[in-house]
Design a protein around this nucleic acid. Structure first.
Lengths: 335, 335
DNA sequence: TTGTATGCGTTATCAC
DNA sequence: GTGATAACGCATACAA
């Protein structure tokens, strides 16, 4: 690996001059700068990020804290879209992206320690497990932070507008004539709480009273649980005419159960999902669902984070609400 | 940030002793080591990776070179599965994972320079664009490498066994009675070449001669192109009875076109995909396809790469072939 | 406009 | 068994 010293030798200047020239410091004259840059390129120089980071305390690296209960990881379409657009935005602003792990070599450590150890300039938490001790440790640390779909007090966040989305969904289902609407909700997170509250509100706004047995605890991204909840709902003496699922993927479990019982969607029972992932729109019939704007969420998260990192004076804490969109699909029958 | 010096001060030992103790050097006595480790933990120490990496030349970081023509990025299910299992395996062996970018701050650079600059111990290339100058630069560099679905001479690689997969697929379609089989192939890569050769071979093995108009150039992960190719095939005076698509996602374009023409799958025309992504198995009818073992590919790639990184003497170049599996589905009619 | 000197936090080679 | 010291490559305050 060629260093600035070797370039300095080659150019007949001091290595300080090289260091400055390579960063376009006004200290160095334009023709010297050019000469230095050219020999640097010729010699195949590339700056040692470790040394630079050690000296400046800046790494131009953003950490991604993302793990999930189910182990789908990056294969989770909603989160992978968020991370992809986060990555693109970070790249365009000159930041790299690494995953926050909990081990270096043989050395085990917490996620927070890892991020500090790597000198991450900032961290995005895209996670469902916000009550996890390790996540909380991160949130209370000194690294600039942005969270997705959860807001820590005094930390920036980007939230899908779940309240509005749920309201849109209930409104749509109600407008199609449904009065017996059931809701299988996901893991008990802030997202779920928001959706639940919004669900009750929207129903109340239409004068619907929701029987308690219509509201069932499920899990996100879990077909097994939603299949079971569906079974439970269909066994009721007065079953719902429409079932709302925690997300599009979970709905697949419900779909299987409904078909196993010889029922058909939406003829015998109407359904709706949440997320608007690709498969929901290529299955037959096309799923009625809410499309969350994952790309916008990821991009916004990167912008907020970098803004905070680069600000000389800390900006006010921001919590950005990103609207979603109803995809009508074909799974809510007009009755 | 607390450093080893502060710990040394606190413990009344030299900072060299601390450095050694924290890495379990036999130099330091067991009870001193214990005492040092405890105060380190108490003081919230975390090792500065930049300093460590600067000194040792090892970063415990693997770079991921992954970009695509279409811009789906991480949302590409096949690749995201590969990267996820790569990440899990890397983590378990004490390695981190960062994306190889081409910019740090304002400074533009090549992917190779970036990876060198960050001191990546190794790089995985999961990419379709193997003829790209930047990818080639990386392949010719000094960083340990593993490629996915492409083999550079003298570099480790993990390949989905496309030849075998394609043969299985053609065999299946043939066994269902089809004699007029068309193939829309993807971007002209090694993967495609392998599949094409295997397609012709398998057809020949069954005594089928393939009319040239049955073999059409398409693109990976592109619905538009496959829709057009489908249109072309269906317009033939003697259209195929079965169409093979470059991948499951591309098939959606074909599906749309087939349905637009008022035809039904598999009644009027049979189809098969490639990849075995989730949506292929939840759509109706379930797509006949080949499931590539993405998780195994990612895991193997990490193992190969780390093995090469950690070997004192460079091991022989390896190219691992990962078998796939036929998912029969319901889109190839028995005729 | 350019060069000198020092230190960032760590590891490693010695000497004690 | 422990400590002093010199790098690693770079950035920067300060001197020239």
């Amino acid at each position: 690996m060629v260093t600035i010293k070797e370039i300095a030798l080659e150019c007949g200047v001091s290595f300080a001059a090289v260091s400055k020239a390579l960063r376009d410091s006004p200290d160095i004259g334009p023709e010297t700068t050019l000469r230095i840059k050219e020999t640097a390129k010729k010699m195949g120089y590339s700056r040692n990020a470790a040394a630079s980071s050690l000296k400046t305390g800046r790494s131009h690296m953003l950490g991604v804290l993302y793990y999930d209960r189910t182990g789908v990881g990056l294969a989770h379409e909603y989160f992978s879209l968020i991370l992809e657009s986060f990555k693109v935005q970070a790249a365009s602003q000159g930041y790299g992206m690494l995953f926050v792990m909990n081990k270096v070599g043989q050395q085990q450590m917490t996620y927070y320690d890892y991020a500090r150890s790597q000198g991450c300039d900032g961290v995005i938490i895209a996670n469902l497990e916000y009550r996890d001790a390790e996540v909380i440790e991160m949130a209370q640390g000194v690294i600039p932070l942005v969270t997705v779909d959860y807001a820590f007090p005094n930390q920036d966040s980007v939230l899908s507008d779940n309240a509005d989305c749920m309201e849109k969904l209930v409104d749509y289902v109600y407008a199609r004539g449904h009065r017996r609407i059931a809701f299988i909700y996901g893991d008990l997170s802030d997202v779920t709480k928001t959706r639940l509250a919004s669900f009750y509100n929207a129903c109340a706004a239409h004068g619907l009273s929701v029987p308690p047995e219509y509201v069932i605890k499920g899990l996100f991204h879990d077909t097994e649980t939603s299949a079971q909840a569906t079974r439970q709902l269909l066994a009721l003496s007065e079953p719902p005419t429409c079932i709302l699922y925690p997300d599009d993927f979970s709905f697949i479990g419900g779909k299987n159960e409904i078909e196993r019982q010889g029922l058909s969607i939406p003829k015998d029972v109407s359904v709706a999902g949440f997320d608007g992932i690709l498969l929901s729109q290529v299955m037959t019939p096309r799923l009625t669902t809410i499309q969350q704007d994952a790309r916008s969420i990821g991009k916004t998260a990167a912008e907020l984070l970098i803004q905070r990192i680069e600000a000389k004076t800390p900006p006010a804490v921001q919590s950005v609400l990103v609207p979603g969109q109803l995809l009508p699909g074909e799974t809510v029958k007009k009755i």
